[in-house]
């Protein structure tokens, strides 16, 4: 089990964190046309190697974090607070959201 060294809380098991996917710039919704918007929604770089991602320290400080991770080894290359960093996205809200558990 990998650990993520939370810039707030220190090293914690990955199970305390929620994975938010690759970070990517959000097109301006006011001017976006379908093609780039859907590329933003659905397409990832999906590299085998370093990638910049958003994670949430769900069971800890509840902060969203910018994580650089090598996807071939899961080694954490860098981890930082989102402030000042490139904008991360909040997309894919419905992906993986199970409709199962509705009351």
């Amino acid at each position: 089990m990998i650990t993520l060294s939370c810039p707030w809380c220190g090293p914690r098991n990955v199970t305390e964190f929620a994975y938010g996917g690759e970070s990517g710039a959000r097109p301006d919704p006011a001017t976006a046309t379908p093609q780039p918007w859907r590329r933003y929604l659905y397409t990832n770089a999906n590299p085998a190697g370093p990638v910049t991602e958003t994670w949430l320290h769900r069971a800890g400080c509840r902060r969203y974090l910018v994580v650089e991770r090598d996807t071939t080894t899961n080694e954490i290359l860098a981890i930082r607070r989102p402030g000042g960093a490139p904008s991360t996205s909040a997309r894919h809200a419905t992906t993986g959201r199970a409709t199962e558990q509705r009351p």
Binding site: M1, N13, V14, T15, A18, Y19, G21, E22, N44, N46, A48, V51, E53, T71, T72, T73, N74
Partner: peptide, 13 residues
Amino acid sequence: DPFASYSTRGSLE
């Protein structure tokens, strides 16, 4: 797995 990866080492959790 809960996060994207190309690693196939498997986990205890």
